[in-house]
Amino acid sequence: MLHIQGLTASIAGTTILRGLDLDIAPGEVHAVMGPNGAGKSTLSNVLTGREGYEVGGTVTYDGNDLLAMSPEERAVRGIFLAFQYPVEIPGVGNMYFLRTALNAVRHERGEDPLDAMTFLRVAKEQMAALDIDPAFLSRSVNSGFSGGEKKRNEVLQMTMLEPRLAILDETDSGLDIDALRVVADGVSRLRSPDRSMLIITHYPRLLDLVRPDRVHVLSAGRIIRSGDHTLADELEVDGYASTVAAAAS
């Protein structure tokens, strides 16, 4: 589904990704872990089409050149990024935003747009599952939301938009243990044989709740080690330093 080869990225003259290779098959959940500054957020930005990066290498998604697509094109074709820092947009209603996004994705899939009533019903079901206050829909996008509310809003969007490749950028950061469980349950419910996930995280705690198929260690812009979920446990005990040092020697 996703095939990344020799991916490089630099911003304002600073090189961040230095030849990253990664393959994700349909239905697989991969985790990318790494110390601060390894390039984790750059990877999610480049995969979702954020402007401002000089990008090299190839990324194919379902056989198509992903890097040639605009952010909205990637999104309607099924790529979703759960933001590390969801953006506050005062004046844009959450419901209007979500429905516009959902109908853009449905349009690409050849489905009819959802009317306001149907949308509301579906949204409320999902919100109940994620323990989100229904009043949330009438507020501005992420405006004045707490850290936990913002992250739950990301998972709500992901649930509604039903992506084929979900990228979660530090979705566990800033969550207390209860909120983490709600988020992890939401993510776990989305696991399916034709949906892939890329979980980017600094800490292994989300990975205790959502067991990935593969774990990769990103350091200085490259994947230096890969393994199964036990690698995450190992990193929790030993930290990144020994893995990074071993890769360097």
Binding site: A75, F80, F83, A101, L161
Partner: peptide
């Protein structure tokens, strides 16, 4: 970017 990343042109 946030809006575009959700498929909104």
């Amino acid at each position: 970017f946030y809006l575009r990343s959700r498929g909104i042109p």
